[in-house]
Design a protein around this nucleic acid. Structure first.
Lengths: 147, 147
DNA sequence: TGGATTTAGTTAGCATTGCTAACTAAATTG
DNA sequence: CAATTTAGTTAGCAATGCTAACTAAATCCA
């Protein structure tokens, strides 16, 4: 019984956490299929997005922004470079570090890849009443603020 | 300009899609760290959750529920069985199919694993006003309905 | 009825994306 | 200046996705 209560509908922190958690899993599984046609992969796309919309930065800073470890980001940046989506320049102030920049190709691929996922969602959102979209918008802000 | 508009705040389908998409990515990256201590992994935990809360079913039905391909779910179920978290019985009505059931151990592991993730979120949600939790709850329902 | 198609499941093999351990080299600190 | 911290790499492993190719059972239809 106690464990059933965990999943019961309601607005207790635990009940809401469970529903939000499930919704996030299902949402990302659904959009993952859309990525297939881009040929870049979600981790690379997401790192590229940080570079394009947040500006060039070091691998360590990218790793922190993406919440992954340094070796993981090191490998992702190598792949981005190999694919011509990003370049590295020496950091004049710190000879250990390098700065990662998106290339023009990187910007264009990001735009296309992001557009695919977002359009997939947007098509579905378009059928909702405006008030529901406002709820989703506010919810996204709340989530970003929490973590 | 046109591409900047994609990221501008607003409640157009595209703007909301973008924010919801990012929020889902960041949410799951944050809870992923919590999984580490469970030793089961999110895909197995999620499949187990379907079995426990939705009832026993075939591998194909599980794959559909989890939005993965049949070979992926076949391998996940083999791992669940190997770990003693689920068992398979023959389907009397269809000799190709088998029914997957959670074991008592599976139920208990699910409870613990889920609890970790959900508690991680719930601790943060507890600091929100009730109205905000209602927004998140409603948003989760909307997302599940869309996909 | 019987051949064709669909569906359930497996195996094999590959790609992506996480991780830790162990290392080098540069920067910082006491 | 020695000790520690920080940036980055390499190597190797684990989890989880996929397609291709296959078997076997069920279903469809002419």
């Amino acid at each position: 019984m106690a464990e059933r209560a965990t999943l019961a509908a309601g607005t207790s922190p635990v009940a809401v956490a469970d529903r939000v958690h499930s919704a996030a899993i299902h949402l990302l599984r659904a959009v993952r299929r859309v990525d297939a046609g881009v040929g870049v992969g979600p981790a690379k796309l997401s790192a590229l997005s940080v570079l394009v919309f947040g500006g060039p930065r070091s691998i360590a800073a990218l790793a922190r922004a993406e919440q992954v470890r340094l070796p993981t980001m090191s490998r992702l940046v190598q792949a981005l470079e190999r694919d011509g989506l990003a370049t590295r320049t020496a950091d004049p102030a710190d000879r250990r570090a390098s700065r990662v920049h998106p290339t023009a190709l990187g910007r264009s691929v990001l735009r296309r890849g992001r557009a695919r996922r977002v359009e997939f969602l947007a098509r579905r959102l378009a059928s909702l009443p405006q008030a529901d979209r406002e709820v989703l918008s506010r919810a996204a802000e709340l989530i970003e603020g929490l973590i």
